[in-house]
Structure formats: structure tokens, C-alpha cells
Design a protein around this nucleic acid. Structure first.
Lengths: 206, 206
DNA sequence: GTCTATAGTCCGATAGAC
DNA sequence: GTCTATCGGACTATAGAC
């Protein structure tokens, strides 16, 4: 109820920024372009967010809050690890497909010369890692549970799940293929197979 | 022998650009900053490369040429797929550690609004995929050989191998850990284990 | 909460001298 | 092959009116 007469110009700015940052990168996008797309004036950026970097951190917060919620919903509980991982992968891929631009911005942007943004991202990923590992680790079978090194497996999962979406524009060119619903039908499960059993591992089906 | 009286200002520009693009991104780095770091004048960029985008494509060419050479050296031949993959992963990780900035720029930069760069990257990755898959696929055991979908496994390998290096500044903060030689001792093999046998898979050692 | 106008800086690219 | 000087435009941020 703190919002009184505020229009949704803040949300419009966020949406416009996500779209533009995803296609041109944070650094290459000017505030003028964002406000033009959002239909407001330059001054609104500083009014709502304070600065351009803060606009980016707001985007990061939005993405990782969702991602952490997905981990909280799918990973804790009594089910076997395999079921959890498959559910988690499906939920993540589904969210990535829902919000491809948000996902791209939140994962790709990593300006090493802006400590404020690095810190923001580190804080959010730390929370994600904590949620995911306390949910998943206890349900892993041995010898996996003893051998998992979270600082290696964690980033590996992120890389595995995000690579397709991050590189999608070039992958489409490389394989002369567009990715439709049919392609994504089993995508999450194929990634889960690869993650759980590896390239040599037994496939579930056939 | 086409180089006559050329000094190495072209190479100095490339090195300075790689370092700056890696830390601030392509878009956020101005030509002035690059030429200052390289110790030459602005006009040299256009003399040697024609434009800023062309400077980036030169960087992409350099990286992927190396990566393709590593695939050519490690993947073809008569050895079992497992040996090949391990060798390949070790060689790649070793190269990434040698040239972390080059690697970061070449993989991360993907401006969707610059078709020239997208095309350049697609062409290079297409060549990499062709080299890697003709080298590796025939030596895979069944059922892996029949089931592999290159358009899924290819990007997955890239994501798996690059995630640690791409996210390294945040991972160091998240895990409050710096990555030294000891950490990297078995890094490539652990990734190979994960890729070949999965999280549940049998470890080679112990 | 929203705007216009503007300050001050930096951008990429090139002309022209040496 | 290398430089300086400069063009026209874009940038972020803010001051001040409504």
C-alpha cells in the first residue's frame, strides 16, 4: 500500500530494459532508448531506480528471486534425488522459456568493473546455492553424496541448463534449425539424463 | 612476408582489447581506452581493423582457431571415446587457464543486434562442431552413438566447460574461495567424469 | 510522479600532416 | 605506419517547472 498515485511506469521501465539489455547488452543500451520504449522520460529512471546500475540490480533481483523460489518448491522433500532433479530441471526450463530475455540478462551480465553488481549477483547466487544444496544433497545416493563438490557441480548445472538459451541465436544459425515446442518437449529430461547419468549412461526410455 | 615495416601495434591493440573487453565488455569499452592501454593512437584501430566490430571479430577468429585446433588434435583417432574426451577436456581447460580473458570475450560476447558478429561466431562454431563431432561420434559406444543429439550435447559441453570461467568472479565470492593450481589439478577430469557418467555415475578413482 | 532542458563527458570515425 | 585534431552525435545524470 505504499504505492499511492504511482502509475506503472516503473514496471514499464523494467520490461523495456530487460528486452533491450537482452538484445544489445546492458552497456550498449542507452537510457534514452529504454525510456523511449517504455514511453516515459529520462528522469523517471533516476526517480524510480536512482541510476542505470540500480536498474540492472533490480532485474537481477527479479530473476533470482524466481529461481530461488523454484528451487525451494522442487528440491526439498522426501522423494528420490532423481525425481527432484527432473522436476527442478523441468521447472527451470519452463521458466527460461517463459522469460528468455530476463534469463539472458540476469545470467550474462557480469561487468567485472562494477563491484555493486558483482556483489548483488554473488549474494543472490549464494542464496540459490544454499537453497539448492540443502534441498538436494541429503537425498543423493552414495557415493555421489560424499563426492559432490558444490563449487564445481553448482556452476556446471547453471552452465548446462543455460547454455542453450544463452547461445540460442548462434545455435540456430549453426544447426539451421529453429527451436519450437516440439524441440522443447523432452529438452529438460534430456538435460537431466545427461546430468544424472552422463553421455555413456543408461537412458530411461527404450 | 606481406608485413614490411609494420610494428606490432596490431598485436598490442588486440591484447589490450581482449583484456578490456573481458573485464568491461565490448560495448562498455571505448576505443580511446584501448589505444591508451596499447600505447598507440585512435587512428590505428581503423588502420588495422577498419572498425570496432571488426576488432571483435578478429578476437573471435583467434580464439576459435585455437579451439578448433585443439579438437583436431585430440578427438580423431582410434582410441576409445572416454580417453579422447578426457584428453580434450584437459587440453581445453589448460587453454582456458592460459587465455582466460580471450576465452571470456569469445564466449560471452553475443550482441544480437550486430549480424556481422553473429554470423562470424556462427561460422566459427559450425566449424568447431563439425570437427568435434566427426572426431568423436564414431568412437562412441552404443547406445550413446545413436542417441546423441549434437544440437543438444554440443552446447551442453560448451556450457559445462565454460561456466566456471565465465562466472568465476562471482563464484569466488559465493564460495569465499580463490582458485589456485591445486583446485585445477583434477578439474578437467571431474568435468569429464560428470559429462561421461553423470552425477550418479561411477567415479574412476576409489 | 512526470516532464523539458541542459550540463559535461565520452563515443566512433576520419581527414590530413608527416 | 603513425600521429593530432576534429566532427557530429550519444551518453548519464540532474536541475527545476508543473
Amino acid at each position: 500500500m505504499t504505492k499511492k498515485s504511482s502509475a506503472n511506469s516503473k514496471e514499464k521501465l523494467l520490461q523495456a530494459a530487460i528486452k533491450l539489455f537482452a538484445s544489445k547488452s546492458y552497456a550498449a543500451t542507452g537510457l534514452r532508448e529504454i525510456v523511449r520504449a517504455a514511453g516515459v522520460s529520462v528522469a523517471m529512471v533516476n526517480y524510480h531506480f536512482g541510476s542505470k546500475p540500480t536498474l540492472l540490480t533490480a532485474i537481477l533481483e527479479r530473476f533470482f528471486t524466481q529461481i530461488i523460489a523454484i528451487a525451494q518448491k522442487n528440491l526439498p522433500g522426501d522423494q528420490p534425488a532423481e525425481i527432484k532433479v527432473r522436476q527442478y530441471f523441468r521447472a527451470l526450463i519452463s521458466y527460461f522459456r517463459q522469460e528468455p530475455e530476463l534469463m539472458r540478462v540476469a545470467i550474462a551480465e557480469l561487468p567485472r568493473d562494477m563491484p555493486e553488481i558483482l556483489d548483488c549477483k554473488a549474494r543472490l547466487i549464494r542464496e540459490l546455492v544454499a537453497t539448492a544444496s540443502t534441498g538436494l544433497l541429503p537425498s543423493l545416493p552414495e557415493p555421489a553424496r560424499s563426492h559432490v563438490r558444490v563449487e564445481i557441480v553448482g556452476p556446471s548445472i547453471m552452465g548446462l541448463l543455460s547454455a542453450h538459451f544463452m547461445l540460442r541465436p548462434v545455435i540456430e544459425k549453426v544447426f539451421q534449425q529453429t527451436f519450437d515446442d516440439a524441440f522443447y518437449q523432452n529438452f529438460a529430461d534430456e538435460l537431466a539424463d545427461l546430468f544424472l547419468y552422463g553421455l555413456f549412461g543408461a537412458k530411461k526410455e527404450d
